[in-house]
Amino acid sequence: MAYSEKVIDHYDNPRNVGNFGTTSECKTDSTVGVGVVGAPECGDVMQLQIKVNPETHVIEDAKFKCFGCGSAIASSSLATEWIKNQTIDEAEKLRNTEIVEELALPPVKIHCSVLAEDSIKAAIRDYKAKNGIAIEETAHSH
């Protein structure tokens, strides 16, 4: 199976790799939301971090780390690009299908895009929890 050019581009030049400090620093920083999804047993672990302006709730920066295949790395790299400068409400609306389309992911790689969507949601949930913002249960199954 050949990878699409966009997957290869993100894989070769991943955008926004990194984190906003150590695990414990990120835990205490209320402007940072962290989402870690997946499991090593499944062959994918995605970590997405957002740095949010507490006044405007705009995601001013986003970073990722990923243990996974090329499509998982590309999906998380793309996700950080897309959610930057969006409000958390806007970012929450991102759907995995948009990632599938942009990266031309084949059916066996759709779970990579699902992980990316889940990691955004998890990071936003973490940010909201830290700042006492009510978390709406979004009904979304996959």
Binding site: P40, V45, K65, F67
Partner: peptide, 20 residues
């Protein structure tokens, strides 16, 4: 790129984490 390598370097035992 690996979050697991970060955890390893921070001394976190990956096998003890309860993964979702």
């Amino acid at each position: 790129l690996s979050p697991l390598f970060d955890m390893h370097n921070e001394g976190i035992d990956i096998s003890t984490i309860e993964w979702a």
